[in-house]
Simulated scan of single mutants.
Amino acid sequence: MENVAILIVGAGPAGLATAACLTHLSIPYVIVEREDCSASLWRNRAYDRLKLHLAKEFCAENSAENILVIPGLDSFPGEAFHSSRYKSGKSFSGKSVLVIGSGNSGMEIAYDLAIHGANTSIII
């Protein structure tokens, strides 16, 4: 094995993005992952239509720790949850649903809701 400068623990989205950045900078690395596939959280615990989209050059700072607090959400009478809990639009058929955000997850979820008969709106 060649000498490597970086050991990446975990082949999730952050680990894969880090690997992409290191590749772009020609810095050798090794990824270790306890699961039997990359991005196991996305592949095994996400909604049915989710596809893993990796940019060819991805070196943006990780902002996943930033949590958006929506004023008034605590008094919202409907159901509100993060995309990580979404599985399928089947149970939303005939219901009005608002998807907040138009990133890959938001657009995939909005499409899935629409094809399952939900009255789907997106806010950006």
Rank of each mutant, 00 (worst) to 15 (best):
F81H: 04
K56E: 15
G72S: 04
Y111D: 03
F81W: 06
S75E: 15
S38V: 15
D48A: 07
E79T: 10
S102T: 11
R45S: 13
K95V: 06
F58C: 10
Y29Q: 14
G103I: 00
L98A: 07
I109H: 07
C59A: 08
A114N: 13
S83F: 01
N104T: 11
E79G: 03
G101C: 03
C37V: 11
S105K: 02
P77S: 09
C37I: 07
Y86H: 02
S93T: 14
V97K: 04
G72A: 04
L41G: 09
A55C: 10
G72F: 02
S91P: 04
P77N: 06
E33N: 05
R49Y: 05
G94Q: 05
S105L: 04
L73K: 07
S93F: 10
D48Q: 05
K56M: 13
A80L: 09
F58I: 09
V30C: 06
G117M: 08
A60G: 11
S88C: 12
I100F: 04
A46Q: 10
N62Q: 02
N62Y: 03
A64H: 11
S91N: 11
S93I: 06
Y86R: 02
V32Q: 12
S63H: 12
A118Y: 03
L50I: 14
F81D: 01
E35R: 09
I70P: 00
I70S: 01
S88L: 02
S93D: 07
N62P: 09
L52W: 02
S84D: 11
E33F: 02
H116I: 09
F58P: 00
E108R: 09
D48T: 03
S63F: 07
A64D: 15
Y111N: 08
N44I: 05
P77D: 13
G94A: 02
N62C: 12
Y111G: 09
S105C: 03
S83T: 01
H82E: 06
I67D: 11
L98P: 02
G78H: 04
F58G: 10
G89H: 02
V97A: 05
D74N: 15
H82W: 08
G89N: 04
I109M: 03
S63L: 12
D36G: 15
L54V: 12
S96V: 00
